[in-house]
């Protein structure tokens, strides 16, 4: 099963719609609620990161019997220092974004804590790709 969603930078009104759509699909597939909860947190945060930091992006979600895989590919400023960006509390979000309660520097650590596999590839001045995998059987 494959889904594709397009995200516009700055479009906070629709932030969370991908996470919401994926949640519905996983529920229909009777996936373990604990895994659904983890997956939804990761997808939401990665989605918000595109809205808050990038110009636009594409989210590809692939689901098979073993796992859900989501790739977030954006055109944006990129992340100069990924290790730094992963630190809880570190944020480069704008003042406006922070006033909304975003930009607390917890997004990437939320993704890390709620995914089985996380990969971030970034090129400064071009964009960032985030890949999240969660397995349905934690055996």
């Amino acid at each position: 099963m494959h889904f594709r969603y397009k995200i516009e930078g700055g479009d906070f009104t629709n932030a969370g719609s991908t996470a919401s759509a994926v949640k519905k699909v996983l529920k229909q597939l009777n996936i373990d609620p604990v895994i659904i909860k983890r997956t939804v947190v990761g997808i939401y945060e990665a989605e918000v990161n595109i809205v808050a930091h990038a110009y636009n992006g594409v989210i590809d979600v692939d689901i098979d019997e073993n796992r859900i895989f989501a790739r977030f590919e954006d055109a944006g400023p990129g992340i100069p220092d990924i290790t730094k960006a992963m630190e809880e509390g570190y944020s480069t979000a704008s003042e406006i974004v922070r006033e909304m309660g975003f930009g607390a520097g917890m997004g990437l650590s939320n993704i890390k804590n709620n995914s089985d596999k996380l990969e971030i590839i970034s090129q400064v001045g071009k964009g960032t790709t985030v890949e999240i995998t969660n397995y349905f059987n934690s055996k």
Partner: peptide
Amino acid sequence: ITLQTHKNVIAIASLK
């Protein structure tokens, strides 16, 4: 319990 009043609050409440 929050003082945030915008739409994203509802998105989170729904997702969680």
